[in-house]
Design a protein around this nucleic acid. Sequence first.
DNA 1: GTCAGCAAAATTGTTGACAATAACTGCCAC
DNA 2: GTGGCAGTTATTGTCAACAATTTTGCTGAC
Lengths: 218, 218
Amino acid sequence: MSDLQDVHAQLRNAILRGDFAPRQRLIEAELAERYGAGRFVIRNALLQLAADGLVELQPNRGARVREISVDEAVEITEIRRAVEGLVAARAAEQVTDAQIEELHALGESMTLAVEQGELLRYSDLNATLHSQLREIAGHATATRIIEQLNGQMVRHQFRLSLVPGRPSVSLPEHLAIIDAVCDRDSERAGRLMGEHIGSVIVTLRTLDDQARSMPQVR
Amino acid sequence: MSDLQDVHAQLRNAILRGDFAPRQRLIEAELAERYGAGRFVIRNALLQLAADGLVELQPNRGARVREISVDEAVEITEIRRAVEGLVAARAAEQVTDAQIEELHALGESMTLAVEQGELLRYSDLNATLHSQLREIAGHATATRIIEQLNGQMVRHQFRLSLVPGRPSVSLPEHLAIIDAVCDRDSERAGRLMGEHIGSVIVTLRTLDDQARSMPQVR
DNA sequence: GTCAGCAAAATTGTTGACAATAACTGCCAC
DNA sequence: GTGGCAGTTATTGTCAACAATTTTGCTGAC
């Protein structure tokens, strides 16, 4: 049936998908019924989610979906800039010939997706690229940290991929990073990745300013 | 009595203090008796510790103290280099006049501690400096990540502070970082912090090599 | 109308017992 | 002796009930 890992994953996906609004209280009994699991299982799942940074629990007051403000999203992305820069540099040092092939193929797919206006597909490929670089770098700790931060960001990243004109900025950046890694140029790969994520931060801030100036849409 | 937060903190300290050897199994019933708490409380504490990265749990096989290899310690420190560099740079941008006073005083205390050979005191002041910089930077996410990583490193950091000659390398580095922050020179502060933690990595690796060449001491 | 105090309801925190699973031990065949 | 098998023990996973706490809604005085 539904054991701990199961429920944890389901709840996690539900939160990331937006089934629960930020700041919404998560009542154990409700969740237990919804997922057909005991309250005990739910409770442990909530503890794990709190560790993941997706919910916050206050003693005797229960769990809420953690709201991640734009300011916090920027902070998270700043850390990602530092750590993914390290990952890209390391990937450039470790990349094998076979992996170079894969990266080139990935770059072509991304170009194609943008040309054909398939934003969602491009967004997926984007995630694949970053994840591929982590794998090539073989840095377990960096991978753990980045995936933890990504989990907290998903909502904002989703908004990002829909920004008009964003792909035409980010695609060249991605291709340049791929080139640097395939050239085994560690310094350049790290720097380009830093700049790329820097542009993500700028876009995040811009989005926020636009939202503030159009309060009716918020 | 002993509630959840309590037991979690106690267990955490016990592991960090070395009361439990790495790879040692942590049996719930044993811990429950030891801390006079119910098994339920222990269980939740273990879940939180797993999230902290201090123990690892395998389904139906219980919890073990997580062993952190030197390779992993190096990985963790590499991330810290990236993130603490960011923190130092940000601290240089945000520091107030009052905080500059405090930093100078801290620098003098560190110098004094080294002159008088008080290694443990120097080690504490070292931790204080880094923590102070985090506070000045006001970067909640960076703080969270670094504290998480520190928790996993404590054992190795302890060994580090006892290395002969180490303070004479690290003290000037610390003082230089303080100067850069007090000059509000963001670029220099970040770079110096990166170099400082880079020297920590070198020392970690050197320690490991020495241990390998003297197997009887391990 | 509003505020304090109190009672009721909702929700979380904890306990003990039981079920499921993994680890261990000793036996038997070869 | 050794390797596999079965029964036993140790340990974790789950459940249902109960206690403690917080939140909510009501009442009445000012």
